[in-house]
Simulated scan of single mutants.
Amino acid sequence: MRRRLVVSDTTLLGLVRHLTDGERYWFGHVLTGDPAHADVDFTMEVPEGTPPAEVVADYRTAIAESDRNLAAAGFDDRTPVEHPEDGRPWTVRWVVAHMTSEVARHAGHADILREQIDEVTGR
């Protein structure tokens, strides 16, 4: 899970860490205005001593937090977010669409890394 197969710091475990930050930033800070998540760094680096199960559990916790934040915010295409970044008039619906595309993109990255490790194409 920590094996680097590309020039960047991208690893399977690093992608999970990065997506955790994304959940907390977009659904915690931007959507709800929670300052606790304003300064996430979106890193893909996971400290060597951090067990993979801890990284995955943290991601699941972040997803549950996002689900609660979305339920509280509602899902109307005109509902503005609490903390628009750079003053942009983003909506709840925009944040959901953005995060859907981010997760899909990184799932593709993970599939490419996995294919390099196990040499199976999934067909």
Results as ranks from 00 to 15, higher is better:
Thr61Leu: 15
Pro84His: 01
Glu82Pro: 05
Val81Gly: 01
Asp86Trp: 15
Val95His: 04
Tyr59His: 13
Val81Pro: 00
Pro89Met: 08
Asp77Met: 06
Arg60Asn: 13
Pro89Ile: 06
Ala110Glu: 05
Thr79Arg: 11
Val81Gln: 03
Leu70Ile: 04
Asp67Gly: 09
Asp67Phe: 02
Ser101Pro: 05
Ala104Arg: 10
Glu85Arg: 13
Asp111Asn: 11
Ala71Ile: 06
Pro80Ile: 09
Thr100Gln: 13
Phe75Cys: 14
Ser101Tyr: 12
Met99Arg: 11
Pro80Asn: 00
Phe75Lys: 11
Arg105Ile: 03
Gly87Glu: 07
Arg105Gln: 12
Thr100Pro: 04
Leu70Tyr: 06
Arg105Asn: 06
Gly87Trp: 12
Ala73Leu: 03
Asp77Ser: 07
Thr91Ile: 01
Phe75Thr: 15
Ala72Glu: 14
Ala72Cys: 08
Val96Glu: 07
His106Ala: 07
Ala97Gln: 14
Glu65Ala: 11
Pro84Tyr: 06
Arg68Phe: 01
Asp111Arg: 10
His83Met: 15
Asp77Arg: 10
Asp86Phe: 14
Asp86Lys: 14
Asp86Ala: 15
Tyr59Val: 03
Arg78Gly: 14
Val95Tyr: 02
His109Ala: 05
Val103Phe: 12
Val103Cys: 07
Gly108Pro: 04
Tyr59Pro: 05
Asp86Gly: 06
Ala73Asp: 10
Val81Ser: 08
Asp111Gln: 10
Gly108Trp: 05
Tyr59Cys: 02
Glu85Trp: 13
Ala62Cys: 11
His83Phe: 09
Asp86Ile: 11
Ala62Val: 03
Thr61Met: 10
Asn69Lys: 04
Pro89His: 03
Thr61Trp: 15
Glu102Met: 02
Thr61Ser: 15
Val96Ser: 02
Arg60Ser: 09
Met99Ile: 03
Glu102Asp: 12
Pro80Arg: 01
Met99Ser: 03
Ser66Asn: 09
Arg78Tyr: 04
Ala97Phe: 11
Asp111Leu: 04
Pro80Thr: 05
Glu85Lys: 11
Ile63Gln: 10
Asp76Glu: 12
Ala104Phe: 11
Glu85Phe: 13
Arg68Thr: 12
His98Glu: 09
Gly74Thr: 03
